[in-house]
Design a protein around this nucleic acid. Structure first.
Lengths: 268, 268
DNA sequence: CGATTATGATTGAAATTGATTGACTTTGGC
DNA sequence: GCCAAAGTCAATCAATTTCAATCATAATCG
């Protein structure tokens, strides 16, 4: 990992939320605390961020859309370490030049940090993801037409023909509300609409689902398991859930949660 | 392998991704590290890329969007008082509930401030306008499909059928590069494309043009004067320009520049 | 053919990184 | 308010990586 890459990731993380801890940045960059501290000190001198005890904060208050919005913020906080590890594993699947689709959601949003060091074509219906990638990375960003829904933070057109169907990608990344034998469940009808629009624009459907998602159910079935190509989850997944995916011939990727974060989680 | 050949490969690699390591470039070019380093040093001096420890990166770091972006920022500063007054007059034409289209540009961007207190349906191809309205107002925000162009800060689809044609509005607001007898002139081909897409989606075309625009010309003609319904300008407009608009039966609104700002302008 | 230039290898210098240590700060309980 | 515990930080050092300088060889040019 080059120094400039780390700096990009750190700045990206600092923009996302009011403060980031040194441990957060270690997990995000994969380097030691000492290096993160040195980087923060450098960026502080360069006035790219403000150094505070325990971590760093953005130099300017202007925040991204939705991160401060209530519904986004609360689910943002839970299982953050797992989501980060899963998102990292998702980005690891991509190579520079790839065209991908990222569906809106708090898990998929975590992909923006590792994405800052990539150069992809990203099609997303998530306004915060688009905004972040636009400001913090050199990726090409493409959007569907539609109205921006504030609560869900997604762009959704009321029309079937909204131009998004011109964009095809190798992979589509999406989160979900729950993942069971019936298939992929979603909680919000609006999200179902948005996801169904995109789901046929990609060859492989990659689902990002932390291990808690396997025990959650919902009333809205988005698609059957057979449509899913890959599931990325954390190492808290139970054997039963793994067997279910295996039976459906779904590729399973288990992301390792960073040790520092794991400890933190165990203590809580 | 010729030197110029290597340089081409190196530059291309740097453009493709945010950073490349020396090892990457060795593999790509098949030459030794020493040569790659020498090449990077050369290109660094020639300002074709930036040399960083471990490799090289593109010379222009991720361009930031919005009012801080360079190309945006410079034109943002000039005639700011006039632009504000014009934008205010433009927003005064709107009533809560109206559906309007706002084309991207620095003059039209000034509309976001008076718009914060309104409740309109705003369709815009400008990412900064959408972002601002989303964060600072309760207006409904709608976007066309397409890629986000960083320099122009607009969203533009490469396809004719991009879903934006589902949105119709009473008025479309746009800026311009120049306004002459031939019609409305624009400076950037990309802007022409974006504007031509929208121009037929509204009944009335309202052009925001500060008085300096009447003496500017450009090579790209966007539409004839007859298509324009209203022009909003500042009180620096000359009689000759006003007569031209009158002859074309265009409604002319002259926005009063606030006294305090006028003074500021005089001082400069 | 000689001279100039480009290339690759070698080597020592310099910078970066991660771990360790001890000092300092904050937090929570009493 | 005081103390202990945990957390945070700066300084240091060793290991690694990266860089620059040098030199020998190969290629190019006049």
């Amino acid at each position: 990992m080059l120094e400039t890459e780390r700096h990009r990731i750190i700045l990206s993380a600092v923009q996302e939320r009011p403060v980031v801890t040194v441990a957060d940045l270690c997990a995000l960059t994969g380097v030691s605390e000492a290096t993160v501290r040195r980087d923060i000190a450098q960026l502080h001198i360069a006035k790219k961020l403000r150094r505070v005890r325990g971590g760093a904060e953005a130099i300017a208050p202007p925040q991204f859309v939705g991160i401060n919005a209530r519904p986004f913020a609360v689910s943002q906080a839970i299982n953050i370490a797992e989501k980060r590890a899963i998102a990292q594993a998702a980005v690891d699947l991509c190579e520079d030049g790839d065209a991908i689709i990222i569906n809106g959601g708090t898990t998929t949003f975590q992909m923006v940090h590792p994405l800052t060091t990539k150069r992809l074509q990203v099609f997303t219906n998530s306004f915060p993801i688009a905004e972040h990638l636009l400001k913090q990375s050199r990726n090409t960003v493409m959007l569907p037409a539609g109205a921006i829904y504030r609560e869900q933070n997604i762009i959704l057109s009321p029309f079937d023909d909204d131009g998004s169907n011109h964009f095809y990608a190798r992979r589509m990344f999406m989160g979900c509300r729950g993942l069971g034998p019936l298939g992929l469940m979603e909680g919000d009808p609006l999200l179902v609409q948005a996801e169904q629009k995109l789901i046929d624009q990609a060859d492989d459907l990659v689902v990002l689902a932390d291990s808690s998602k396997f025990s959650r159910r919902s009333s809205l079935l988005l698609c059957p398991l057979t449509r899913i190509h890959t599931v990325i989850t954390d190492d808290g997944i139970e054997d039963r859930a793994a067997s279910m995916l295996e039976a459906a011939e779904i590729r399973l990727i288990v992301a390792e949660v960073a040790a520092s974060d794991r400890q933190k989680r165990a203590e809580e």
